[in-house]
């Protein structure tokens, strides 16, 4: 039984990365009806920026601000830089291509993804890098009999806090309602005085910002990072997005967590090697049987 809970905690940790990255896919898709293929690489960029901040300053950040202040500051810097990168991606790769149609957008998104991935390689090198050991002290303790590490608690704490904030913004604030309204019916949103450009700016900043923080935490958790890690995480997070219903924001969070847990349990009980295959089969099955995702609703098609 303890293996089960260990797998569960591990799954939730990984699932929270997926959830944070999935939020970015889902928000952008909701408003723009566009799969941001560069999003996974922005996640990788977050991991590398975090790596540089934590190693480059040879621990100065954590030394001068204390452990938690240092991690918080690093996370904030990473979030802001990756958010900026996200906004630039929209300006450079998407905005000029909108008039040329969806296929061209896929190619420019892929082009951007290749660019970011190889820019990371050019800057940080093609070999995997390792985060400094034990940035967060490797404490283990038992939580109602379930063994957890301090790192896991930290990651889950930050992730859930972020998700709560996003949920509050999107579901409870005026601006969040405006974002959802723009996703549903852009023309009517404009009629009500919603500046859709601001909404676009928001989703392209917030989504990658969250993805960047997820990248940083992923680095802290697994330590090893590589320049092409974005593809794989991007694909997984994207699966999570579909699982929750693309464009559905609470769905993306739920989808990420479910995916992480399912994956961990599959790895623990069925086969570690085949877990990803199961995940993609699950993805296809969802698209066949419930294309609007677990939380989605059926929509009628108009001719």
């Amino acid at each position: 039984m303890s293996t089960f809970f260990e797998q569960l905690v591990n799954g939730l940790t990984v699932g929270s990365f997926y959830a944070l990255v999935a939020l970015g896919y889902s928000m952008v898709y909701g408003v723009m009806k566009l799969i941001n293929f560069a999003h996974g690489d922005l996640f990788a960029l977050g991991a590398y920026l975090g790596y540089s901040l934590l190693t480059g300053a040879t621990g100065k950040i954590t030394a001068s601000m204390g452990l938690w202040g240092g991690i918080g500051f690093t996370a904030l810097l990473v979030a802001l830089s990756v958010a900026l990168a996200g906004v630039l991606v929209e300006r450079i790769a998407y905005r000029p291509v909108y008039p040329s149609g969806r296929l061209s957008l896929v190619v420019s998104a892929l082009g951007m993804a290749i660019f970011i991935q190889n820019a990371i390689m050019a800057i940080w090198g093609s070999r995997p890098q390792a985060f400094p050991a034990s940035v967060v002290p490797s404490l283990r303790f038992s939580f109602f009999g379930i063994p957890v590490t301090l790192l896991q608690v930290t990651i889950l704490g930050i992730s859930f806090a972020l998700m709560l904030i996003i949920w509050l913004i999107v579901e409870k604030s005026n601006f969040g309602a405006a974002v959802r309204a723009s996703a549903l019916d852009r023309e009517t949103a404009i009629l009500l005085g919603i500046d859709v450009r601001k909404v676009i700016f928001f989703v392209f900043a917030l989504g990658p910002g969250l993805g960047g923080v997820a990248g940083l935490m992923n680095g802290l958790y697994y330590r090893a990072i590589s320049f092409n890690m974005g593809w794989n995480y991007g694909l997984k997070a994207f699966t999570a997005t579909i699982l929750g219903g693309i464009g559905n924001i609470p769905g993306a969070m739920l989808g990420g967590l479910i995916l992480g847990v399912v994956e961990s349990l599959l790895a623990g009980y069925v086969s570690g090697a085949w877990k990803d295959v199961f995940v993609f089969i699950l993805l296809i099955a969802i698209l066949i049987f419930r294309p609007t995702g677990l939380l989605g609703e059926k929509t009628a098609e108009k001719v």
Partner: peptide, 24 residues
């Protein structure tokens, strides 16, 4: 402007729809 076909935001609550009316 109340557009043709009403165009309420179907997956938002009635209150949220009204609230958005003040957005501008």
């Amino acid at each position: 402007h109340v557009p043709e076909g009403r165009r309420v935001f179907s997956t938002l609550s009635v209150q949220e729809n009204l609230m958005l009316g003040k957005y501008g």
